[in-house]
Design a binder for these strands. Structure first.
Length: 203
DNA sequence: TATAAGATTTACT
DNA sequence: GTAAATCTTATAT
């Protein structure tokens, strides 16, 4: 079942982010349903976070959607090549978001392999640009409600992992001391071929 | 209008 | 381990 709007509007994004681990991210693009279990996320905490696009209440055409109430998608292009998928959280005008950094494929594997131009296995969707490509996501999805039938998160009854690592966020060296915050959450044990089977057995 | 930099990935040495 | 690919966005003239 889809996660509710109230779930996304939790006011503490750093506490909320690790609860996305084990949830299933689903997209329906061009009539093809694809999905994957979330294995890695990062929290971005609005105006007080130097690494966040909304730091210092900055508002641009790109990041305006971060100020919406929690429960919609923020997808943008990075390095001109890669789409990065974020879940907007918290209340209106609280510009928090959770970056999805890794998934394990579940549904529509053949479609995802075609989009990626690779066969599945280790390193198939363990990066924000990779999983977005696999799921067919593009910046055009920005602002889409997670209650829509295009993109959403599902709870399929997987126990929230307790053995995740807390790590420094990556790729944000420009953020000064905020680059040292342990706001990246990664599941350790369920990666690669073995991990994929372990997830599917639970679903 | 022009320029610099980026929440990355991939290939190559 | 290092560097290239690649283009939108943001900021400065």
């Amino acid at each position: 079942m889809k996660l509710t709007t109230a779930y996304y509007q939790h006011t503490d994004v750093v506490a909320l982010a690790p609860t996305f681990l084990g949830k299933v991210l689903v997209t329906v693009i061009d009539g093809e349903l694809t999905s994957g279990v979330i294995t890695e996320v990062e929290a971005y905490a609005g105006v007080n976070d130097k690494a966040c696009h909304a730091h210092m209440k900055k508002v641009t055409a790109r990041n305006i959607v971060m100020y919406e109430p929690g429960g919609c998608l923020y997808a943008y292009l990075c390095y001109g090549i890669h789409t990065l998928m974020n879940i907007v959280t918290n209340q209106a005008n609280q510009a928090d978001a959770v970056l999805i950094r890794g998934i394990e494929p579940v549904d529509g594997l053949a479609v995802m392999e075609q989009r990626r131009g690779k066969t599945s296995g280790r390193d198939f969707a363990n990066g924000p640009g990779k999983l977005s490509q696999a799921l067919g996501a593009s910046p055009a999805l920005t602002g889409m409600s997670l209650q829509s039938d295009v993109v959403w998160l599902e709870d399929r009854g997987i126990e929230p992992p307790t053995d995740f690592q807390k790590l420094k966020r990556v790729g944000i060296d420009y953020a000064g001391e905020d680059a040292n915050l342990l706001w990246r959450f990664k599941v350790n044990t369920l990666f690669g071929e073995r991990g994929h089977k372990a997830w599917c057995n639970k679903l």
